[in-house]
């Protein structure tokens, strides 16, 4: 039968693009999601009118309390900010150094022992489940209030992230060169340094910068539990109701983080 006879000028039956069953299940899923949203509004009492009513309070807070910022407080902010930066820099560097060997152990194409590989993977997962604020509380208890506890907390926190990211990069490398080095009698260290490292170097540098970026932000929060940096004075000034000082801190912090993100993104863009 020629193909043209198959085309009916007036189709007797409608043919849906989306099958009926799928339409039903999509519709039901959407309905369930909407119901969940409504329930969560009731549970959290996040009714829209509360937000609308609250706007004047926010406005008054900004205009009356935060404005004008106390610029004479800038020197103190700058010093604390420098401490925050140094905390982030140290912890990112330590994490980058420690995470690299760990990521080879957490990559199945390098660590051929299935049990050891799983152990390292689970350990890293465990590390990532601990919030950095808990780590900070722990380290403040161990080494006392100050930047050192912050550095330790951020280091442990970043190792979890970095090792995970790098190990995934390691697992995705071109296996050819690794095979070639194995076939020429190279040992596992030589496979890593000649086969893997040249392939992952751009991503390694990029992820380390990314972690530095995260650490600058995370270290602000850590100051609230006494782990040093700008968070420490932010917490102090808030509890003393020195809102003009608080506003100086916020403005300086905002500018710094924006600049760091900008530079880091530029560098990472070039690496990849």
């Amino acid at each position: 039968m020629p193909n043209s006879e198959n085309i009916n000028p007036t189709p007797r039956k409608r043919h849906p693009v989306t099958p009926k069953g799928l339409k039903w299940s999509l519709g039901t899923s959407l309905l369930i999601v909407i119901v969940l949203y409504i329930l969560s509004v009731y549970q959290t009492t996040a009714f829209p009118n509360r937000v609308v009513d609250g706007f004047p309070i926010i406005f008054n807070f900004v205009v009356d309390d935060l404005w004008p910022p106390n610029w004479s407080y800038f020197d103190r902010v700058a010093m604390s900010l420098l401490e925050t930066w140094n905390m982030a820099l140290f912890s990112s560097t330590f994490a980058a150094l420690i995470a690299l060997p760990m990521s080879f152990l957490a990559a199945s194409n390098i660590n051929r022992n299935a049990y050891f590989y799983q152990f390292i993977r689970n350990f890293l997962n465990l590390l990532r489940t601990i919030p950095e604020i808990i780590l900070a509380v722990l380290f403040v208890a161990v080494v006392g209030i100050g930047a050192v506890s912050g550095i330790l907390a951020l280091t442990v926190f970043s190792i979890g992230i970095l090792a995970k990211l790098i190990s995934e990069t390691v697992e995705a490398v071109d296996p050819g060169p690794l095979e070639a080095i194995r076939a020429s009698g190279g040992n596992v260290f030589q496979v890593i340094s000649f086969g893997v490292m040249p392939q992952i170097l751009p991503q390694y540098a990029s992820y380390s910068l990314y972690v530095l970026e995260i650490n600058v932000k995370a270290s602000v929060v850590l100051g609230f539990v006494g782990a040093g940096g700008i968070g420490l004075i932010l917490n102090q000034q808030l509890s003393l109701f020195n809102y003009d000082n608080v506003s100086t801190i916020i403005i300086v912090l905002f500018l710094t983080i924006t600049i760091i993100d900008l530079i880091s993104n530029r560098l990472r863009g070039r690496l990849e």
Binding site: G176, P177, A180, A183, F194, P198, Q199
Partner: peptide
């Protein structure tokens, strides 16, 4: 044994980001 038995592959298996000389020197690793 593998230092004495060299291998050439279909897909060359060079490290693409490395210089030619470094790739050739990888033959000395053993």
């Amino acid at each position: 044994l593998r230092t004495e038995v060299g291998m050439i592959f279909q897909s060359y298996n060079l490290v693409k980001r490395m210089s030619v000389l470094r790739n050739v020197l990888a033959g000395r690793l053993g």
